[in-house]
Every structure is written in structure tokens, then in C-alpha cells.
Simulated assay, not measured.
Amino acid sequence: MDQLQAQRDQLQKERDQLQERMNHLEEEREHLQIQTEQAFQSVDEIDKICDEIWHHANTIHLYSLLSEEESKSITMKEKQKEIIRTTEEILNII
């Protein structure tokens, strides 16, 4: 009978340890879920920022092309070409 009680106590102790481990794993899962949601939100924000940068760079590129064509000054044309090259690099990065 003492042996059965000892086994029961041991099994109860193991069950408590497993329950504790399961609770810990559940907390870790919840923490990882929160981190995953935050990462997705960050990606969405980064995508929005990239879209906005692309739009502005594209607008600058277009205006530079138009200004270059209309400009009569050689220095102004060179500056516009530099702006065009820079915005093309930005657009390629995005």
C-alpha cells in the first residue's frame, strides 16, 4: 500500500510538472503570437512607406524629365539628369 501511495505521489508530481511546463509553453506561444502580429504590422507599415517613397520618386523623376526637355541651360540639364539618375536608383531599390 505504501508503494502504491509513493507511485501515486510520484505520478501526481510528474503531472504537476507537465502542467507547469504546458502553462509555460502556452505563455511562450502567446508571446510569439504577439511578436508575429507586431512583425506583420511592421511589414505593412514598411510597405506603405515604400509605396509612398516610390510615388514621390516617380513624380520627381517625371518632373525632372519634363524640366530637362524644356531647359535651355546646359547646367540645368546636367542637374536634371543627375536628379533623373538618382530617382531611377531609388525606384530600382524599391
Rank of each mutant, 00 (worst) to 15 (best):
M1E: 13
D2H: 05
D2L: 15
Q3S: 07
L4R: 06
Q5F: 06
Q5S: 07
Q5W: 02
Q7D: 11
R8K: 11
Q12R: 06
K13C: 01
K13A: 15
E14H: 07
D16A: 06
L18E: 01
Q19G: 05
R21V: 11
R21M: 07
N23P: 01
N23W: 00
E26R: 06
E28M: 05
E30K: 11
H31T: 15
H31V: 10
L32Q: 02
L32G: 04
I34C: 03
I34K: 14
Q35R: 08
T36P: 02
T36W: 13
T36N: 08
T36Q: 13
E37Y: 02
E37G: 01
Q38V: 05
Q38W: 03
Q38R: 09
Q38I: 10
A39E: 03
F40K: 15
Q41V: 12
Q41C: 04
Q41R: 14
Q41L: 14
S42D: 12
V43L: 15
D44N: 09
D44M: 04
E45S: 08
I46T: 09
D47G: 00
D47T: 12
K48G: 05
I49K: 09
I49W: 06
I49A: 10
C50A: 10
D51E: 09
D51H: 10
E52Y: 10
I53V: 15
W54L: 14
H56M: 15
A57M: 02
A57E: 03
N58L: 07
N58I: 02
T59C: 02
I60M: 02
I60F: 00
H61L: 15
L62K: 11
L62C: 09
Y63H: 11
Y63A: 07
S64W: 05
L66V: 10
L66C: 06
E68R: 14
E68Q: 15
E70W: 03
E70F: 01
S71H: 00
S71P: 05
K72P: 03
S73E: 12
I74H: 07
T75E: 15
E78K: 09
Q80W: 10
K81R: 13
K81H: 12
E82L: 08
R85E: 15
R85P: 11
T86V: 12
T87I: 07
E88L: 08
E89K: 11
I90K: 03
I90F: 04
I90H: 03
N92C: 08
I93P: 01
